[in-house]
Amino acid sequence: MGVPVESEILDLKRIRNEEEEEEEEEEEEKLQLKSESIRKWVFVFQNNPLYIQSFTEADDALKLHHIVHCSLDVVDERVKLMHHSGSIVASGFGPLDITLAIANIMCFSQVPDISFATKVNNPKKSGPMLNETFLGLLYPTENYKVYGYLTNTKVKFILVTTDLDVRDVDVRNFFRKFHAAYVDAVSNPFHVPGKKITSRTFAERVSNIVKSFGLGSSG
């Protein structure tokens, strides 16, 4: 990975123009966390961090950065594996071919499965991890555990913790709360998508979530 950090203005322009080739536009957020007051977060948009917050007192920022960047590749790998079977046939439509598309309406077929009834049972339940946002333990290192979370909007949260016997439920809970905080932060009309999150409210909320990490579900 390691796409160089681009200016957001360029990025937005690209979205506006919609003419350049689609590249792996992944917003990624990383979040690192080490317990026992040694915690750190990073968010990444196109592999550039959206939000970094260190809860670390020790001077190992570089090491944590390294771990998080490695784990990004792991996330990509997992997602690719999951989606390998569901590859999509390339389409001939460019952005400017819209008129062509309209002309083609007559040959459109009805989407068979659009019954507009809410699905109660997911037939793919056999693979429970398949499309879940929570990716679970990405990989363990000798001192850390790295957890990943990938939202529908391709934002990655990474959590690094030194707490080696952390429970999955706690991590899940943590990511859920964190995701809610993130959504509130990016819904701020003054937030520019892809730019670092500078909101103080968000930072406060995040540190609260970190503090309560592991406490909530024990009761």
Binding site: N131, T151, A180
Partner: peptide, 23 residues
């Protein structure tokens, strides 16, 4: 879209995402 997809599993293909928009 960021908010409404919060508690959902990820979409595996485009059609699924479009259906999400529709429903």
């Amino acid at each position: 879209s960021e908010r409404y997809t919060m508690e959902r599993p990820r979409f595996s293909d485009h059609l699924e995402a479009i259906k999400f928009i529709c429903k």
